[in-house]
Design a binder for these strands. Structure first.
Lengths: 149, 149
DNA sequence: GTGTAATAGTCGTGTTTGTAACTAACAAGC
DNA sequence: GCTTGTTAGTTACAAACACGACTATTACAC
């Protein structure tokens, strides 16, 4: 009765999801416990920490997040004084976002933690393997299959 | 102001999430459009298609899904007659789940689609790269970092 | 100027999820 | 028998998400 020609365990999207979930779990705990942040908020924080001042839609493009997600994340972050919003004088639709001192501190802390965390994740692999893995993941992200059968 | 020592674009959990999302998207559309299924339901369907009759908790262990997720997925699947539930005579807490004819048809269809889909995803890679990728993802899934700093 | 389209960001509502509490059935000790 | 603990699965409620509709502002055409 069982059908073993096609193994779910090797189906790539499934594997990717499992790995993504497993590798996010422990770190998720960190930013949640220390700063009460959600993943969306942590991503916004990181983008601002990395690139300095950005607008919501710039973050959206880089992070491939929907603007409603960003809007809400920014809202929460600014309510807790991690993020500062400054309206653009010229185009008053636009808001320039940047980290407050508190936000920068959180970012620094989480960034360091992330580095150490990643080192643990990558420990079982060789340098070459890591490079290949990163490259492959990038390719998979940027080559969406045009699939409508 | 920006800080480029640590690039978010290379942070592994981030990459994994992006790749997982991108590679799931198109296929998600398929089982959603054709059968109105959610990812959880698709997973349950696939496990039952692959392994034949299983209980909810067996699926949970294999798929690393929480039992409430499975409970709801099975509920929806059985309401739409994709899945049949039979209570165990000996241990009446247990339910044996299996696919109906309709469920098996959906499974066959989606399985074939999944195969072709995966072939597209893997097209840009060599056989060796694919093997390494699968192996790496497996390792990442099964080596949860013990991280509580 | 007026009208139309586009863009930045927010809000509202239904859906899905996560967490914990719950019921029902079994098991083991006494 | 009667307790205590464990397991299978469900339910309840709050948190998070997706999606579309919405406001406000700018841009462009005429």
């Amino acid at each position: 009765m069982p059908d073993s020609e096609f193994a779910l365990e090797t189906f790539l999207p499934y594997l990717l999801n499992q790995a993504a979930e497993a590798s996010s779990l422990a770190f998720q705990q960190v930013y949640k416990d220390r700063y009460g942040m959600l993943r969306t908020e942590w991503r916004v924080l990181f983008h601002l920490g990395l690139y300095g001042s950005m607008t919501a839609s710039e973050i959206g493009q880089r992070a491939r997040m929907h603007k409603t997600k960003i809007s809400r994340a920014v809202n929460r972050l600014s309510k807790r004084r991690f993020v500062e919003r400054v309206r653009d004088d010229v185009d008053r639709r636009v808001e320039h976002l940047s980290l407050t001192v508190k936000g920068r501190a959180a970012y620094q802390d989480l960034r360091q933690t992330a580095e150490r965390y990643e080192a643990q994740l990558l420990a079982p692999f060789t340098v070459k393997e890591v490079a290949l893995l990163r490259q492959a993941l990038g390719k998979l992200t940027n080559t969406p299959p045009d699939f409508f059968t």
